[in-house]
Design a protein around this nucleic acid. Structure first.
Lengths: 188, 188
DNA sequence: TCGTCTTTTCAAAAATTCTTGAAACTTCAG
DNA sequence: CTGAAGTTTCAAGAATTTTTGAAAAGACGA
């Protein structure tokens, strides 16, 4: 029974596991999140363990990481110490959450270092130093612009506003009307 | 001599190595590219080998990958079989190149699979299947919009046009005047 | 065509990252 | 308090990815 559901669920979980490196999270963590996404009810540690054949420790690690990312919310049952997890379902928010965390952790330090290098290099005047500085400068300029775009995305823009505008203008190459189920009703 | 240059170069190379997973290329490959970027002249295999303390094979692999990505260009000297490499310096183009390749390799297959799953799930009517399908649908919608944004970026938009407009509007949260090197003189 | 210089290949080794599971720790109902 | 239910930690082991180096292949001038 439910073989289609199970099959799709399995592939879905596997896909998220494979995408994990791209998002910067571990495969198991991504699998846990996607598994939660594929179910109607919240799940506790044991259910996740059995559903994905993971050890208790692995599930605990994954859930902690997911909580840190803001991708799942722990919920306490009344008369029990059992904690169940509910996945965040507003994917746009989820992506913002991921982008924001990664920006802070990975991008911002890069930007700062880039700024430190320029003055150091300004004291040199060898051909290498000149060219290198020039390239670092254009890199810094690009990074500053990208930074602005990312900030704008984090503040709610881009995919929402601009993306729709572009869709309306009609981007060639993609047949429209195929998956335009813009049902963002559970937008909280 | 040139200790500042060497120090910055070293850090720069190390940074690119660390960023490599993010771009989806191997650390060594990223290091080779950034090392080339930090020099005025083109370099041949031996120079790269010595400059980065890599084996000949490693350099060859890295250069092939970089050629595939369109990040370096091989140049043949006249009376010799020696090939030297010149790095692409238009970073905006470089990023487009990376995004384009990764989109084709990683993103497009995902989009296609997502589309295959929906009909499969449509035949089920268990609570899990209903919720799951709803979530997949909103995912598909988001993916379609993101796809449009990415396409638009690849066609020359976003960071260039929109990014600048946002900068002009003044994005709060960043102290201005620090690195607003909006010297887009080499904007081509 | 030959000989030399250079690049590419690929299996094995090294390094890194991920997962496990048992022990320590926490929390809360009784 | 006490003890059971549940969670977290972390060092060891597994799995995966990256790098190496020697051998094979390729390219060019003579």
């Amino acid at each position: 029974m439910s073989s289609d559901l199970d099959a799709v669920r399995h592939e879905f979980v596997q896909l998220w596991g494979a995408m994990a490196p791209f998002w910067g999270i571990s495969p198991t963590t991504a699998r846990v999140y996607s598994w939660l996404l594929s179910r109607a009810a919240t799940a506790d540690t044991d259910e996740i363990m059995h559903g994905l054949e993971l050890s208790r420790g692995a599930v605990s690690m994954a859930c902690r990481e997911l909580r840190d990312w803001g991708l799942i919310f722990p919920e306490k049952e009344p008369g029990s110490r059992r904690v169940t997890y509910r996945p965040a379902t507003d994917l746009e928010k989820v992506i913002r959450s991921i982008v924001q965390t990664r920006k802070r952790r990975e991008w911002d330090p890069i930007v700062e270092r880039l700024r430190e290098w320029l003055p150091q290099l300004a004291r040199e005047d060898s051909p290498d130093a000149l060219i290198f500085r020039e390239r670092l400068e254009s890199m810094a300029a690009l990074v500053a612009r990208a930074d602005a775009v990312i900030e704008s995305f984090l503040k709610g823009g881009l995919v929402g506003r601009i993306g729709l505008k572009i869709l309306a203008n009609g981007t060639p190459g993609k047949r429209p009307g195929s998956t335009d189920t813009t049902s963002t009703k559970e937008n909280r």
